[in-house]
Design a protein around this nucleic acid. Structure first.
Length: 652
RNA sequence: GCCGGGGUAGCUCAGUGGCAGAGCAACCGCCUUGUAAGCGGUAGGUCGUGGGUUCAAUCCCCACCCUCGGCUCCA
């Protein structure tokens, strides 16, 4: 056998992966869950071929956890089939952090939370029973016989063997040549490609998380199945850590923090997906907008403003009524026509462009607007600030010549990254979405040229990116930028899109150097995406502890006792005069209690002033996440504050 | 839109077919505090909205609104 480090090892004929692992070491054998033989993932019990390149998959690797999770999904299915007479099981893959399995219960029954408890207990029993995972390969006919009571399995088998299988089917069944199944007991067998752990005793560090409805094969028109989600790990501690991470993530849920910190709310009277901003959230939003405006001012953008409503004709011209009517708020019938709330700003920016003849000398023309739009997101999809019906885009449309496109995109990338960094993001993922031939307009050449321009811009910056074939908008290719937040989650924020559809539809032109009329390219781009969404992501990123430059209250001054309140007020006044957001809690309660309250508000600096400070013009500085310093001259503190705010660094 | 949970005081939540509850917050006193919860008191509710069943509904039923977890969707 050849091992991953290119060393070789002799084993007797017929040896398996587990034999190899044992030969290498006891601990490896304990951690082994599967093998890779000549690049193919296989069960540990599979006999190795002479001269094969073999590696062992251990349970603490991504591939190993994937095997654990997939195997645990089988245990879940067996448990459900045992507990619910007549249950049909469909698919049960491993997913990030866990697995799920989809079921159909007789008489449209559904699982309750109590059911989950019972199912989980039964699963533990199956684990204790240490059932073997026994692989068998068979013909379609045999498989159809085994699963004759399982219509979803039969559907998968038929699709795979007819060569119509997709990637999720392949995971379940294998290939057209041979259908594989794994048997755990007399009564339970599941269709599966594998590999699996040798026996259920290797599992056990799992938890069922939730039950949800899910469409069979993701088809909205198809039957709805009952999906059970679970998480599974290689050890008790890994499971505990995962559950702890979930708790931590929940603590920074922006919807919860928005309430706790009195930033904004979603009054029921307003209707779903519509928010009102409270003073504290409003300050932060204003700072974000001020910063955005300043950067656009310096970046050669022209500021424009457009109304929230438009005559239906506009959206007929733009094509939105044709393609996205369902996503628009319903029309208002007026005496002089039909009006819609705008779902996008671009058509209006096109009108500004078209208002008069344009020369190549004006291009690139960069129009910028913090434009509020309304989209009728389906009721079930709303999610706090992250999916909302009324929101404001930091929207810009850049009209340029084809020749300018590549440079413009390259400088846009710089602009985007520099703005995102200012808000504390440092890790980015780039995605290039290319044409979907069935759902797109425009010539091959223009698609090619604009895709090249995007690609060139990414390459020029030396950025790694993934290509998402067919993910482009119908009107042109795009680059989407995901950021990673403080706890490693990915959020899609910024987007840069090429558009040659709207210029066509609106008949946009410019007079070129040769006096010919030409059509400009339009670039759509948003850095925040939507202010609301970006704010929500920021809130989760910082866990509410906004950097000082964004914090609603930057400094709070506390007097040790009432006698010092007057001095505290003077300190407040001095800081306010320097332009900082400062307040004071008078000494009518215990100092400790006031400090605690201020800490819970995540105020960057709490200043405590007492006798010594009154006499020496000093303050005690209690910074968020840092150590208390006594007797700091007020002037020194102001210096420190100005550095902190100027550098936008987070004091946490 | 679909499947399943939920909506009770400002917040977090308990509870019952028969007078509506706690903690925190708020307000009022006392305490005058040196770095994360001092003590006492007061007030606060159409139990999401509308209909139905019942002698009686916050509780049971129906519809709608809002919300949460998913699915689908996301110009």
């Amino acid at each position: 056998m050849r091992l991953p480090d290119d060393s070789t090892r002799e084993l007797s004929a017929g040896s398996t992966g587990i034999d190899l692992a044992q030969a290498i070491g006891k601990r490896l054998a304990q951690a082994a869950v599967a093998t890779v033989i000549n690049g193919v993932e296989s069960d540990l019990g599979v006999a190795l071929v002479d001269g094969a390149k073999v590696s062992i998959i251990t349970s603490d690797s991504d591939a190993g956890r994937h095997v654990l999770r997939h195997s645990t999904a089988h245990v879940l299915a067996q448990s459900v089939v045992q507990l619910f007479e007549g249950a049909k099981f469909s698919i049960g893959p491993a997913i990030e952090d866990g697995f799920y399995y989809d079921f159909e219960l007789p008489n449209n029954k559904t699982f309750s939370d109590q059911d989950l408890v019972a199912i989980q207990e039964r699963m533990q029993k199956i684990v204790e029973a240490d059932q073997l995972f026994v692989r068998a390969e068979m013909t379609t006919k045999e498989a159809l016989k085994i699963f004759k009571d399982q219509p979803y399995k039969c559907e998968i088998i038929e699709r795979v063997t007819k060569g119509n299988g997709d990637s999720s089917d392949a995971l379940e069944a294998g290939s057209a040549d041979a259908v594989s199944v794994y048997r755990n007991s007399e009564s339970f067998v599941d269709l599966c490609r594998g590999p699996h752990v040798p026996s259920t005793g290797r599992l056990g560090h799992f938890a069922l998380m939730k039950v949800a409805g899910a469409y069979w094969r993701g088809n909205e028109k198809g039957p709805m199945l009952q999906r059970i989600y679970g998480t599974a790990w290689e050890s008790k501690s890994a499971l505990a850590e995962h559950l702890h991470r979930l708790e931590e993530a929940e603590k920074r849920d922006h919807r919860r923090l928005a309430v706790e910190m009195d930033l904004l709310s979603f009054p029921q009277e307003l209707g779903g997906g519509l928010a009102v901003w409270h003073p504290k959230g409003g300050i932060i939003r204003k700072l974000m907008e001020d910063y955005s405006r300043e950067r656009h001012q310096n970046g050669g953008y022209k500021f424009v403003f457009t109304p929230h409503l438009a005559n239906a004709h506009l959206f007929e011209t733009s094509g939105h009524l044709q393609f996205y009517k369902d996503g628009m708020y319903p029309p208002m019938e007026m005496d002089n026509g039909t009006y819609y709330p705008k779902p996008m700003n671009c058509p209006m920016h096109c009108l500004i462009y078209r208002d008069r003849q344009r020369s190549y000398r004006e291009l690139p023309l960069r129009l910028f607007e913090l434009g509020t739009v309304y989209r009728y997101e389906r009721a079930g999809t709303l999610h706090g600030l992250l999916r909302i019906r009324g929101f404001t885009q930091d929207d810009s449309h850049i009209f340029c010549t084809e020749e300018q496109m590549a440079d413009e995109i390259a400088s846009l990338l710089d602009f985007v990254l520099s703005v995102l960094r200012r808000f504390g993001f440092s890790e980015f993922d780039f995605k290039l979405s290319t044409r979907n031939a069935e759902k797109s307009v425009g010539s091959d050449e223009i698609w090619q040229r604009s895709t090249d321009a995007l690609q060139e811009a990414l390459n020029r910056h030396g950025l790694q990116y993934t290509v998402a074939p067919g993910d482009a908008a119908f009107y042109g290719p795009k680059i989407d930028i995901d950021v990673r937040d403080a706890i490693g989650r990915k959020w899609q924020l910024s987007t840069i899109q090429c558009d040659f559809n709207l210029p066509e539809r609106f008949g946009l032109e410019y007079i070129a150097t040769d006096n010919a009329r030409k059509q400009p390219i339009m670039l759509h781009r948003a850095l925040f995406g939507s202010i609301e969404r970006f704010f929500g992501v920021l809130l989760e990123h910082y866990g509410g502890a906004f950097p000082t430059w964004l914090a609603p209250v930057q400094v709070r001054v506390l007097a040790v006792a009432s006698a010092h309140d007057e001095y505290a007020t003077k300190v407040v006044e001095q800081l306010v005069a320097c332009g900082y957001r400062v307040d004071q809690l008078v000494a009518d309660e215990q100092l400790g209690k006031r400090i605690r309250a201020s800490k819970l508000e995540r105020i960057p600096y709490v200043l405590v002033v007492g006798d010594d400070d009154v006499s020496n013009s000093t303050v005690g500085v209690n910074p968020r996440g840092g150590d208390v310093r006594r007797d700091v001259p007020l002037t020194d503190f102001i210096n420190q504050l100005s550095i902190d705010v100027g550098q936008a660094k987070n004091v946490s």
